[in-house]
């Protein structure tokens, strides 16, 4: 969602406080209706059909609209209408920020120009971020990194999985290669096979808790072994989808049992840090070889 990227920039520039930024994002979030809900409200789909598509979506890395069209529940025209009705993320942001008297339209346009320059974004990149399409958003940042295509695909899939299960408005930043990464807790799963590498989630306690809560559908307290177990299970399901996609391309990768520890440690070697932000909290996806 455009709002989470631009609000973060406005915060960096001191133009919005953290609270104002959270308020704007919350307003944008509430204004965006889920596609399935919209489709049933307009009687394009029955509740049963929407539930069926949601279930398929949990197991397959595909969009709601694409599945609904394939099933014959929606026509291309209906989907296009639904997407328009769902609301343009950029316009929702402009509406939220102007209604709250934080900035006017001219100011937004002016800041948008400096945002592109400061973040080294092309007009095309800005349009991709404004599009609200997670794939296009993520590609802008992945293309600024030296990640291989194989890992870019892994990160893009993880972004979609986070959007689906944890936060519809997840934000990503440019992946960076680091010499080592110090983690507070270990929640890791390795792959072996044609390509061997480790994947791990680390970062703010709150981000790990958010994943656990999404998995267990219950409120969690401080990070404990149950939290890490749920994070590892999330990683395991995500990695399973990736392994299946790669298998279909002729690349065989098997998942190893997840590893978790409540103690801090360090990852060394070829390490990539991919910063995600869920509900504003940093969640680092770590890929190491």
């Amino acid at each position: 969602m455009f709002g989470v990227y631009f609000c973060n920039y406005l915060e960096e520039k001191g133009l919005l406080s953290k609270e104002q930024s959270a308020e704007v994002i919350d307003k944008c979030r509430k204004s965006k209706v889920k596609l399935g809900l919209l489709a049933t409200e307009l009687n394009f789909m029955t509740q049963e059909q929407a539930n069926e598509v949601n279930k398929i979506q949990q197991k397959e890395d595909r969009r709601f609209g694409d599945i609904a069209i394939e099933k014959g529940y929606l026509s291309e025209g209906q989907l296009s209408l639904l997407l328009k009705q769902q609301g343009d993320g950029y316009l929702l942001f402009v509406q939220a920020v102007t209604e709250a008297d934080l900035l006017d339209n001219d100011e937004i346009q002016k800041i948008l120009g400096t945002y592109a320059i400061d973040k080294e974004l092309s007009q095309e990149d800005v349009e991709a971020i404004k599009s609200g399409d997670i794939d296009r958003e993520v590609q802008v940042f992945l293309n600024k990194s030296d990640l291989s295509q194989f890992y870019k695909e892994y990160v893009a899939l993880t972004a979609r999985f986070l959007v689906r299960f944890v936060d519809a408005n997840v934000r990503i930043d440019v992946p960076v290669k680091v010499d080592n990464y110090t983690y507070k807790y270990k929640a890791l799963q390795g792959f072996i096979g044609d390509k061997s590498f480790n994947t791990m989630f680390a970062g703010d306690d709150g981000a790990l808790t958010d994943i656990a809560e999404a998995m267990l559908k219950e409120e969690m307290g401080e990070v404990d072994m149950d939290t890490l177990d749920a994070v590892c299970e999330f990683l395991n399901m995500n990695n399973g989808l990736f392994a299946r996609d790669e298998y279909e391309k002729g690349i065989s990768v098997d998942m190893l049992p997840p590893e978790m520890e409540l103690e801090s440690g360090e990852v060394n070697g070829n390490v990539y840090k991919i910063p995600f932000f869920v509900h504003g909290k940093e969640l680092d996806l770590i890929i190491s070889e």
Partner: peptide, 9 residues
Amino acid sequence: VTAAGQKSK
């Protein structure tokens, strides 16, 4: 009980 991606197993 399986995650996706474990077809051969």
